[in-house]
Nucleic acid binder design. Structure first.
Lengths: 121, 121
DNA sequence: TTCGTCGTTCTACGAACATCGAACAAGGAG
DNA sequence: CTCCTTGTTCGATGTTCGTAGAACGACGAA
């Protein structure tokens, strides 16, 4: 939890973003978040331990790819699509397309249980 | 020298390409090759030892980013632009744009000495 | 043949990374 | 308060990566 630091838009570096996209798990997370919806940590499913998932989410956050918001004990994560598109036009789209074609990060997803998601709020 | 293996277009994987682009030196090489011209190894300038440069060129080749051709004792490298664009539309463009904005790999270049280049041949 | 040029490969090493389990911290429920 | 849930952090481990130097191999020139 604690204080999380997000880089400003101008502080987002190309290399950090690309490096963040060079891991299948993180690309999978990107794909999950690509619809623009905010996701809760517990909603995410990936074939790694929770500490590892936390690590990947941190890498994405530190790179400026995602934004993390805390609400009580839960934390929500969303894609910083606008910042990324402004900084590196077309990059996220190209990555999403490429990842989709290769089915990268297919083992990452969200719980399909509707009741687990926030009930319309 | 020896036999060098290039992945077929279909064998090029997204993760390998993105991983190849996560290093400043390799991005610099990409930028140098982005004009579509074939470059000779000795033409390239990068702030690393030649064995390291060879390593980076190998990573790019193995990822399917570049194609290497040998002619006598010299070897020429060029970007596999068509294959990459076919496989991952917009990715190379986005990377080039992003890298340019961040000035990634600016310390990589080619010799500016015209006489060192092949004399019109 | 001998020598020099060009690029690869081998070997090594430190740094960074992905991974996990366990401990920890913060908040909510009882 | 205590207990449970949620997510972070720490410590450890094995792997990969970037880097360099040295040896090697292929070719061209003399």
């Amino acid at each position: 939890m604690r204080q999380v630091r997000h880089p400003e838009r101008d502080e987002i570096t190309f290399i950090a973003v690309v490096a963040a996209f060079s891991d299948p798990i993180r690309v999978g997370l990107l794909r999950v978040l690509a619809d623009g919806r905010e996701r809760q940590w517990g909603e995410l499913r990936a074939p790694v331990a929770k500490s590892t998932l936390s690590h990947h989410l941190r890498v994405l956050r530190d790179a400026g790819v995602t934004r993390t918001r805390q609400e009580g004990t839960r934390c929500y994560v969303e894609l910083r699509r606008e910042d990324l598109d402004a900084r590196f036009p077309g990059l996220v789209d190209a990555v999403l397309h490429g990842a989709e074609g290769d089915d990268v990060g297919a083992d990452v997803g969200v719980v399909d249980n509707a009741s687990t998601s926030r009930p319309a709020g």
